[in-house]
């Protein structure tokens, strides 16, 4: 019983990481329908941003890294959208292959610049240690990631629901042509969407440095799970993504607890495939007269 309870914070923090990673995809994949295979490398770029900042900010580089990585990686995403992806809208297969190529290039660049071996980013001192609650150890770093995920979800939720640009994003998602006919500069909205989605990946990357060492292939570890969270949650549905991330995180933690890591993956995939057979549209769907 006690050991079971111990897996709860583990599962939730895995879920929080998944959610952070998926949150960016919620923009580029969920809102725009672009399958950006380089999204994982944007995580990696965010993590290395924190690593680079270490030279100036030492152990505080994680905190400084959060906003800096948002901007740096956001600009990378913007460049990718402007330079490549926008020429292939409506051609998902081409986009998938091209961005996969970009992801390989980015991995190689990371290898050339930072070397192939993993590196560590020192966590700030105040994140060391933890508290014991009900006999379960809660690491501060895990709590921090959980809090960061909650904060990011609230910020993204507010942005989409209440802000001017968020409204325009939703309008473009629902009816691109009508959005243009309403005076919305759809190309500009695409750019902002890509900037934010990529920037959030950068933030997630910084958070990942708290979990363990980082390397050039960091992105490929998370990219599939992140896409799964978005698909299982229902495209572009924030509530769905939160629930899916939490469930997948717990599923991962408990499956791994009872078996081993690779078997755990098999179990999780089997559950997801079964779920998508029953509900191919994901946990949450948009409902309206126009769509039914």
């Amino acid at each position: 019983m006690h050991a079971l309870l111990g897996q709860l914070p583990v599962g939730l923090s895995i879920g929080a990481v998944l959610l952070l990673v998926a949150l960016g995809l919620n923009f580029t994949f969920g809102q725009m329908g672009v399958v950006n295979m380089a999204h994982g490398e944007f995580l990696m770029a965010g993590a290395y941003t924190a690593f680079v900042l270490q030279a100036w900010f030492g152990a505080q580089s994680v905190l400084v890294g959060l906003p800096v990585a948002f901007v740096v990686v956001g600009l990378m995403g913007l460049a990718l959208e402007r330079g490549l992806i926008r020429h292939f809208y409506g051609r998902p297969l081409d986009t998938l292959l091209l961005t996969w190529g970009v992801s390989l290039i980015l991995q190689q660049v990371a290898r050339d610049v930072f070397g192939a071996p993993n590196v560590d980013v020192a966590a700030p001192g105040w994140l060391a240690g933890g508290v014991d609650a009900a006999g379960v150890r809660l690491h501060y770093s895990r709590l921090f990631i959980l809090a960061l995920a909650v904060l990011c979800v609230l910020a993204v939720g507010w942005y989409l629901a209440r802000s001017r640009t968020g409204r325009q994003m939703r309008a473009v998602t629902q009816n691109r042509q009508l959005a243009a006919c309403s005076g919305i500069d759809t190309a500009r909205v695409d750019q902002i969407t890509f900037f934010i989605g990529s920037g959030v990946a950068g933030v997630a990357g910084v958070a990942l440095t708290l979990i363990g060492p980082i390397g050039p292939t960091l992105g490929s570890t998370y990219i599939v799970d992140a896409f799964l969270v978005v698909v299982v949650g229902g495209l572009g549905q924030l509530r769905g993504a939160v629930l899916a991330a939490a469930v997948l995180g717990l599923l991962n933690a408990y499956a791994e607890f009872w078996s081993d890591a690779s078997l755990a993956k098999v179990v999780v995939f089997a559950v997801i495939i079964a779920f998508l057979q029953v509900r191919p549209q994901g946990l949450f769907v948009l409902r309206s007269r126009a769509l039914t």
Binding site: R164, R167, A171, A179
Partner: peptide, 19 residues
């Protein structure tokens, strides 16, 4: 044509803000 998932108010607001 309307934006089905936006409220009536948001449908108008989004066009107004675009100006």
């Amino acid at each position: 044509g309307t934006f089905p998932q936006l409220t009536v108010e948001e449908n108008l607001l989004v066009a107004w803000e675009a100006t």
